Amino acid sequence: MHLTAVVAHPDDADIFCGGTLAKHADRGDDVTIVYMTRGEYGGFDTTEAEVAATREDEAMAAAETLGAEATFLDFQDGRVTYSLENRLTLVETLRELRPDVVLTHYSDDMHPDHRTTSRLVTDAYYMCSLPLLETDAEPWEPQNVYYFGKPTSSFEPETYIDVTEFHSTKEEAILEHESQVEWLEEHGGIDAEFDGLIEGIRAESRVLGRTRGVEYAEGFVPLHQSADDYLA
């Protein structure tokens, strides 16, 4: 099985679905993280290029911790837009990677990059199997798309993955994003929810786990209903 997570920023995969990615990698599945941007707006007194370079290095280390491969699509942080050109970029990406299952952001999210990434991935999923849509890679049809998100009034998980044995790996991967952990904890304002980042994520995973009688869980909303073998 090949699992691909398409995320807007370098830390998103680890925060939202790091335990699930590590669990699939541990059982021998191919796992890839596709980063739309390098998160160059997520920094303090330095240039966008310097922030991007740091965050790319951190993302590569985090992906290795999870047992995943990593690739970047070179979109601009905070400026991911919806267009046919960008949708076709995602079509080509999915065709090249040929994942069985795709993970991405839930459509209802405060961050515009998250919302746009969700829409691009969903529409690319529908288009990437079309034989008359020509790209360098051959058509491919993933089995399903699973969405992750923050606890909101509209995001209500339907699929739960027990990540109890892999939550420490998830936390290690998050801490690889040293510059971003500092940014999220000191930025304040709209990111104030990330005060005590690891503790907050651990608490959220416990709440989800409690609904399924396990210590830690991650939750997803599937595009199509199907039987679950992890996220197969």
Rank of each mutant, 00 (worst) to 15 (best):
P10N: 05
V34F: 06
A62P: 05
H114T: 03
R95Q: 02
L231Q: 00
V101C: 04
T159Y: 14
E185S: 10
T164L: 10
Y82R: 08
I33M: 04
G209Y: 11
A59Y: 00
A59H: 02
E178Q: 09
P99Y: 01
M36H: 00
L231T: 02
Y146L: 15
Q143R: 11
E172I: 00
Y82W: 11
V51C: 02
G213Y: 05
G188I: 15
Y216L: 15
G219F: 09
C128P: 04
D109H: 05
A68W: 11
E48I: 01
G28V: 07
D45L: 07
P139M: 00
F72H: 10
I15A: 04
C17G: 01
F155H: 07
D195F: 13
E138T: 15
T71D: 03
D26M: 13
P222A: 03
F75N: 05
L66R: 04
N86P: 07
C17V: 00
L175H: 03
K170N: 04
T46F: 08
F72Y: 09
I201W: 10
E134P: 01
L231A: 02
T46A: 13
H2D: 06
M60Y: 12
D229F: 08
E96P: 01
L120W: 02
A59F: 03
T47D: 10
W140E: 06
T152E: 02
S154P: 00
Q143C: 06
A217T: 09
T169Y: 00
R38Y: 11
P222G: 05
L208Q: 11
A70Y: 06
L73W: 07
E40T: 01
G209M: 12
A49T: 07
M110C: 11
D12Q: 04
I161Y: 02
H167M: 13
G67F: 00
T47N: 12
V6Q: 00
S226Q: 14
D228C: 10
A61C: 02
Y125I: 03
A52E: 11
E48C: 06
E204K: 14
S118I: 12
A13V: 00
P10V: 06
A217Y: 03
G188F: 15
I161H: 08
Y126S: 03
W140Y: 11
L97G: 07
T152H: 07
T159E: 05
A124P: 08
V214H: 15
E141N: 06
L21I: 08
I198K: 14
P142K: 09
T159K: 11
